[in-house]
Every structure is written in structure tokens, then in C-alpha cells.
Amino acid sequence: MIALRPEAECELDVVALGEVMLRLDPGEGRIRTARRFDVWEGGGEYNVARSLSAVFGLRSGVVTALVDNEIGRLVEGLVRQGGVDTSLIRWVDFDGIGRAARNGINFVERGFGVRGALGVSDRAGTAISQLRPGEIDWDDLFGRRGVRWLHTGGVFAALADGTLAVAEEAMAAARRHGTVVSYDTNYRPSLWAGRGGSDRAREVSTALARHADVLVGHPGDFVLGTGDPGDPGDPGDSVPPEERFARLVAVLAEQMPWVSVVATTLRVVHSAGDNDWQGIAWSPGTGVLTSVARDHLAVLDRVGGGDGYAAGLLHGLLEGESLATALELAAAHGALAMTTPGDTSMATREEVHALALGGSARVRR
């Protein structure tokens, strides 16, 4: 379904382009009353690469930038623990107080019951937000070294006008060298506040989709005039989400005939720990497909669930599976990723495949 470069001619299976932040998690408590935090690393694009490495055993790397201080080196160590290649990190000198550049920090509450999850990011002026076109030798990475798949998304593109240009530069270079490109809209209203809002976010996603083979996100994220990005449907629209997806993807297919796969999640939030969860996808050859529906899925930490979904999808496609199988792997991995704390997945490949094939949560001895 998707033409992949041979493993033997590539140093890496997957490269993610995006910001990696330090996540501070107060556990069951609140940020405002915390006396200690658990430390994780995370980022919308990076989480996918880490799962593909730590869970599925692929050769993954991340293109990002960090300030060379103790926080940056902490993040680097956490990235290494996930098995992700750190040789592509661009290090920026520390000026002593972070005036010129800094490392991003993300405070995250998991939520409980009627109290939803909460993220408070501190990321303005980060090293990666100052990355500019021409600073990374993409032809060397995708050509000489070789990469089978590039994954990036709307979080990175939204950081600054410069990162938007870098995303387009990287995606175009990847396509030149036969590297498959996926783009996840990952819409964050806070990143677009005062910068054109949801309309500008959709314009950006639509423009970058010109260089993508696989789109992750609701097709309305890429079709102008169809509601807010990241929302499976207009809240005032009585059309079921599956039907709305089918209608929009038909429009998208006409506008973007080069796209091989469009995939997103369908989620109903009953409470912070009780979500209905399902995957839905489309390709020209299959039409619209849906995964097994997991109603009232118990959720410990929903942050990173969508990235887990994307990682499961990419894993299936990289393994040459059918879209139907890749979709079940995506939905299963996203569900498992939300059963543990932190942005990143603690699942195993065996657990994902077992759940995708209909496994249960019974005790294994």
C-alpha cells in the first residue's frame, strides 16, 4: 500500500522532527499544591519515535534542539532510555539564565473524574522554536544516511514561523529521497492564540499536507471551512462522527490525491478516567475502516494516547500490514498507552499485538 525504502539502505527506520519537553507530573495531586513532581520527557512528534523504538523495536531518531545545560542533558538521558538516537539533537549554548534560548517544561495533571486533564506549558523561546531553514542538512540525513519514514506534526509547525518553514523544508527533502512522510495535526489552541487561531492552524496543516503521504488527524483539519481542527465533528452537527469522517475524507481525496492514508481517533469523554475509544482510517483502496470500539475504556493518563495511536499505525504500515491490521494496532497501542503515567508508552509489542487480536486484561501467569 505504501512504498518503503529497503531497510538495508537506511540507517534509521523513523525520524521524528519536533520539540522534546521536560514533563513535570504531580501524580494524583494538583500542580498548584504539589511538593514534588515525577519527571518524564515528551513531545507530540517525539512520542511516536520513542514508542516505535521502545515498544516495537525499530531504529528511531529525533531531530530537535536543546540548550546545553543540566535540564537539556536530563532530557537527553531520558530520550536515550527510550532507545531513540540522540545524534540528531542540535545543541545550543547556555547563556547562564536562558535569555537567548531555553528548554521547554510542561506541567501536566492527569485529571480524575469530573476534573479533566490539565497541561500548563512553559515553552516560549525554546531552542527548537528558533530552528531555521538551512540549519539541518536534510539531504545528508535522508540521502546519505537514509531514513525510511519521517514523522512531524502541527505542534512543531506551530512553535514559530521558522519551525513551520523547517517542517516544510524537511518534508520536501524526505519526499525527494523516497522517504515516507506522515503529518499529525495535533492541534493545540494555546499555540495558535493570537496567531490566527484555528483558521490559521488549518491553513498550515493544509499547506504541509502537500508533502505528506499519511495524515493523522480528522480530515476536517485539512479541509478549509469545516469546523475546529482536532474536533471529530461540529458540536452542533447531528451527523454521526463516522459519517462526517467519510464525507470529509471524500473531499480531501479529491483535493489531495497523493495521500495514501488518513487516520484519526473517535473519543467520547465521560470523565477523565472513562472514555469511549476507537480508531478510524481511510485509504483509496479500502475506503473507510473502523477499529474495534472500546466503550468506557479506563484511562489513567490520557496525554500521549493520540501519539500512541499514531505509533501503532506507523508500526503496522512499516511492517507491511494491511490498513485494517495497522488500524487495530493503532487503537490497541493508544489504549494501552493511556493505562500508564507519562506521555510515552510502557506497553510491550506482545501486549499490543495481543490486544489488537482480541486479547483481554485478565491476569497472565
Rank of each mutant, 00 (worst) to 15 (best):
I2A: 07
L4W: 13
R5M: 06
E7D: 09
A8W: 02
A8C: 01
L17Y: 04
G18K: 07
M21K: 07
T33P: 00
R36N: 13
L52Q: 08
G57H: 10
L58H: 14
L58Y: 12
R59F: 11
V67P: 02
E70N: 12
R73P: 01
R73D: 06
L74W: 05
V79M: 15
G83Y: 11
I89M: 08
D93L: 13
D95Q: 08
I97H: 09
G98R: 08
I105V: 15
V108K: 04
E109P: 00
V114S: 03
L118V: 11
L118Y: 07
S121W: 00
G125W: 04
Q130I: 02
G134T: 09
E135H: 03
E135W: 10
W138Q: 08
R144H: 10
R145W: 08
W149R: 06
G154L: 02
A157D: 01
L159R: 05
D161G: 15
T163H: 01
L164G: 04
A167T: 14
A172R: 14
A174T: 04
H177C: 06
Y187C: 04
P189D: 13
P189T: 14
S190P: 00
S190T: 14
W192T: 05
W192M: 10
A193W: 05
R195M: 08
R200Y: 10
R202V: 12
R202K: 15
S205I: 00
V216P: 01
G217K: 03
F222Q: 03
T226G: 11
G230F: 04
D231K: 12
G233F: 09
G236Q: 10
D237Y: 12
V239K: 14
R244C: 05
R244N: 14
L248N: 05
M256P: 00
M256Y: 15
P257T: 12
W258H: 15
A263C: 06
T264I: 04
V269Y: 02
G273R: 13
D274G: 11
G279A: 06
G279M: 06
I280R: 02
V288E: 03
T290E: 13
D295S: 13
G308Q: 06
A310R: 06
A311E: 00
A311Q: 00
L314H: 07
E321W: 13
L323R: 05
A326M: 06
L327F: 12
T340K: 12
T340H: 14
D343Y: 06
T344W: 01
T344R: 13
M346N: 11
A347E: 07
E351C: 11
H353R: 15
A354P: 00
A361N: 10
R362C: 05
R362F: 12
